[in-house]
Design a protein around this nucleic acid. Structure first.
Lengths: 340, 340
DNA sequence: CATTGGCACTCAGCGGAAGTGAGTGCCAAG
DNA sequence: CTTGGCACTCACTTCCGCTGAGTGCCAATG
């Protein structure tokens, strides 16, 4: 009974604080939300909520502010993801449909997300490791110089130059191309790597040094986790709205945004689970980011979570709306990856 | 005579102000620099410099601060580019030598530059338009689906998918591949486009719809100026050092950094001239960036300026040191492009 | 027993007053 | 042209008292 009202009070505090950025007092609460009780009652509830650690006061005789724990309860039990409006959905679809390739999809997504949420948006490029090999192309640039092009099911293309240990003519090239593709095409990265490793030894017996060099570089490209770390960021201009708390909040965030490794770790859980994940304030391992929250979700074709996308913002943030935007963008991007 | 001393005073003011970020007064000047004259004399010089518009006082009874015009005179006549130390050169070379491909070179350069200068660094990817076609590869993914890969002399690779209007067998593919490469390989983009346009009509007479589709997409990729606009940015964390003047300086800068078009325009002159260019404060067309300076230079193999690289920072900036770093990085990057 | 009105108390934030000191401009002498 | 002297300016800091939003507690109430 009173329990219910206390939660309503917490919800009201979170909503008001997010809207006004100012500690919210008992009187303002009963006025703005139709709670149907007196300020004194609300004060009692607030005292309990404070005891339980959901809210604090910045100083005696000021209103209350949600704690991380308070936000956590809010997103877990009090708020529901706010769906996008019809108009927003159309805008998202229209904006993403114009994309011409994978790179473009990622770029557009990250911009879109930062505009929808007015926060800093982060989109990870689809990971290599779970994708399959669509095709391998070998191009002779010079008799002893070859370009190896690796095309993956996600639409990503990796290319490498190889200096060959011996010259190669067109016939041998066609033969090698055929063998490599028979071994790798259609396979998941891990299997392709295994199949390729067996290739240079071949059926004949004596190992082929040219094939060996090509396979080495291919395997290297497949296992190159550098590209797993590729990330697109947009909306840093929105950080200007932080206003105060510059050194304490914006600086570490800007640094984290450049340290892609940190970012990936932050968003990592979301890739694993594929579900919409919210990390609030100091819940993560990075002290400097104790006043920022991360909302992320996995995305990818056919509900396989290949990578992560989301936003980073202040703990004081519109969780329902932002979660809605992140979820919507992830769905549309996944659908586009599905088609290609 | 006094003219010389006045310039020395201006130089001293710029150096001190850059170092301390505080308006500099006559007394502090004669103490910190061995000017050999009394504060009163310096005050007279300052009055003249102020009349001529090289310095101002933020308010009566405060020290002087250089104006844009003052900085301009400083970089044009009073300062010389500060060369990198031996150790710095080695560090630059070592850091850039580890790069594996063009993308990596650009990424490393931009990080390096932001660390050397402790400013925001910007590196434009080498432009398509002046590069030549190294090779075109056509890959049949399905009977009516082709991947077109365009390899340029800068090491850049563009790929496009084409749905073919008719099926194509291996022989026809090899024929088409040969014709396309004979037309385009080795040519400058513009010439390649012209040669390709003539290709589908061919010698026979009746136009080939498959070749037409392939050529269309190739020409499109070559003329795709979207990729001309690719830019890498690093060091935004250094903006935190701006301290005050957040809304007036940092916000518009962050916005400009996301608007790559604006950035490219800012740095554009440098590409054209190829030389080290300094734009100070309001000299450019963007009012919001009136308190930021841009130091940029063209770079590219064999002294062809293919693209631009540089840093963006506050007008109050260490010009000699920053110019030295920009020049050094541009040289090393150019040398690396030379080799590949 | 939860709710409510009343009441004394706290304290951040605001605004004005006074003090401080770095820096200037001007002038007369060297 | 340079210099020491001197009066003046004015941003910045500190101090102080006021105000008002907001609290905690208590006794009364249904």
């Amino acid at each position: 009974m009173q329990e219910d009202r206390r939660l309503a009070v917490l919800r009201a505090i979170v909503e008001d604080y997010v809207a006004t950025e100012e500690p919210v007092g008992s009187k303002a609460l009963v006025e703005r939300h139709g709670l149907g009780v007196s300020p004194a009652t609300v004060r009692n509830d607030m005292a309990v909520l404070e005891d339980e650690g959901y809210i604090t006061q910045p100083h005696t005789s000021a209103g209350r502010v949600p704690t991380d724990k308070g936000y956590r309860l809010f997103v877990d039990r009090l708020a529901s993801v706010k769906p996008m409006t019809q108009a927003e959905r159309r805008a998202i679809a229209a904006f993403l449909d114009g994309a011409v390739d994978l790179d473009d999809v990622v770029q557009r997504s990250v911009r879109l997300l930062s505009q929808l949420t007015r926060q800093v948006a982060v989109v990870q490029y689809p990971t290599l490791s779970r994708s399959t090999v669509r095709h391998v192309e070998l191009v002779l640039l010079a008799p002893r110089r070859m370009l190896v092009v690796l095309i993956l099911s996600t639409g990503r293309v990796e290319q490498r130059l190889v200096e060959l240990p011996a010259e190669l003519d067109e016939d041998a090239l066609a033969d090698l191309r055929g063998r490599v593709n028979r071994a790798a095409t259609g396979e998941v990265i891990a299997d392709a790597v295994a199949a390729l490793r067996d290739l240079p030894g071949g059926t004949g017996g004596e190992p082929d040094p040219v094939a060996g060099a090509v396979v080495d570089v291919l395997v290297d490209a497949m296992q190159d986790h550098r590209s797993d770390e590729r990330i697109a960021v947009a909306g840093t201009g929105n950080l200007a709205r932080y206003g105060d708390s510059f050194d304490s909040a914006v600086r570490p965030l800007l640094e984290a945004l450049e340290e892609h490794v940190v970012l990936l770790k932050l968003m990592g859980e979301a890739t694993a689970s594929g579900a919409l994940t919210v990390r609030i304030g100091a819940e993560g391992p990075y002290e400097e980011l104790s006043s920022t929250s991360v909302i992320a979700t996995g995305y990818g074709p056919r509900d396989e979570a290949l990578a992560t996308l989301g936003v980073v913002g202040p703990t004081r943030m519109d969780y329902p709306g932002t979660m809605g935007a992140v979820r919507a963008v992830a769905r549309y991007v996944s659908r586009i990856l599905d088609e290609s």
